[in-house]
């Protein structure tokens, strides 16, 4: 028990600024959003929204745009997560095995973290340029000209082009977390395994994987959340186009907000919040159960 005389020195006043700020600018809006989603609030009725019941949600799920945005967001999130985690884990294992200049590689892969996604998307729109862009130029030069694509204007491909850029951006922090996890695994485990005659695959299955499970779960959760929240990358590269082929939650809400349909956009935002919260908390619960202590 800590004596009263000590406890008096942690005044509750210390948490007041944080609680006020967070409540006013984060929690209150969430509840207001709950209410606004059931109104016809827009630029036309800016100060006098009327209650319209479930009309916004009905409109949302009847419009093809919204369902497509949900589908694209989920597809983006799944592919982004799978590729970032798989490539990140692989690269971290390679870097952990005494490749020369490993710190330089780590810094290079990590560096996009300080560049705004809008700026990166400008660079990528040049790389993806169908006529002169370096990607198509390279493909033609090595005789694979048939693989050259209209990366951003062909509806079937555009979303994958955005995903490739997302993976390029997101790989760095994933590699850093995996590397830290791998470095915390003691070399003794591998030595005893070698003496016992375990091969590379067995070492991975029985030593590396279980001991880096925590890094794996944290990484998956972080990448998943960033995937669901994707906005700047899509806004900058395609802004939902061509013809809605890359529309995600973020761009869908912004487009409707720009048209002044606030109640409608708030309803879309509410669905988004629910989808993100449910998927993240479910995954978090799942991971808590999976982790092992050594």
């Amino acid at each position: 028990m800590v004596p009263k005389m000590i406890l008096r020195n942690y005044p509750i006043l210390f948490i007041v600024p944080a609680v006020i700020l967070y409540t006013v600018f984060s929690v209150v809006p969430s509840f207001v959003g709950l209410a606004a989603a059931f109104t016809d609030w827009s630029t036309f009725y800016l100060l006098k929204p009327t209650y319209v019941g479930l009309q916004n949600f009905k409109d949302l799920f009847e419009s093809t745009g919204f369902l497509a945005a949900i589908r694209h967001t989920l597809l983006y999130t799944v592919l982004h997560t799978v590729f970032v985690i798989a490539l990140g884990y692989g690269l971290a294992i390679i870097l952990n095995n005494q490749v020369k200049f490993k710190n330089a590689y780590r810094v290079i892969i990590f560096s996009p973290v300080v560049i705004n996604p809008l700026v990166i998307s400008l660079v990528f729109s040049a790389l993806y340029n169908p006529t002169y862009g370096p990607i198509n130029a390279f493909l033609r030069k090595i005789g694979l000209g048939s693989l050259a694509q209209n990366w951003l204007t062909e509806p079937k491909i555009a979303l994958y082009s955005v995903i490739i850029m997302g993976v390029w951006v997101g790989l760095g922090s994933t590699v850093v977390i995996f590397l830290a996890g791998l470095q915390s695994v003691s070399a003794d485990f591998y030595e005893s395994a070698t003496i016992d005659g375990a091969g590379g695959l067995k070492k991975f299955r029985y030593i590396t994987l279980p001991l880096t499970m925590h890094a794996l779960t944290i990484n998956t959760l972080l990448v998943l959340i960033s995937g669901l929240n994707v906005f700047g990358e899509v806004y900058g590269l395609t802004n939902g186009g061509p013809n809605g082929a890359t529309e995600v939650f973020g761009t869908f809400i912004f487009a409707n907000f720009s048209q002044g349909l606030y109640g409608y956009a708030a309803a879309a935002g509410l669905v988004f919040t629910v989808v993100v919260s449910i998927s993240s908390f479910t995954l978090l619960g799942l991971f808590r159960k999976m982790e092992v202590e050594y």
């Binding site: 969430s30 207001v32 809400i253």
Partner: peptide, 19 residues
């Protein structure tokens, strides 16, 4: 927990605009 939930639950951007 009140604060940490904010790491996962995204901010509601339209109501923030109203506010």
């Amino acid at each position: 927990n009140y604060f940490i939930a904010g790491l996962i639950v995204p901010g509601s951007i339209i109501p923030i605009y109203l506010e």
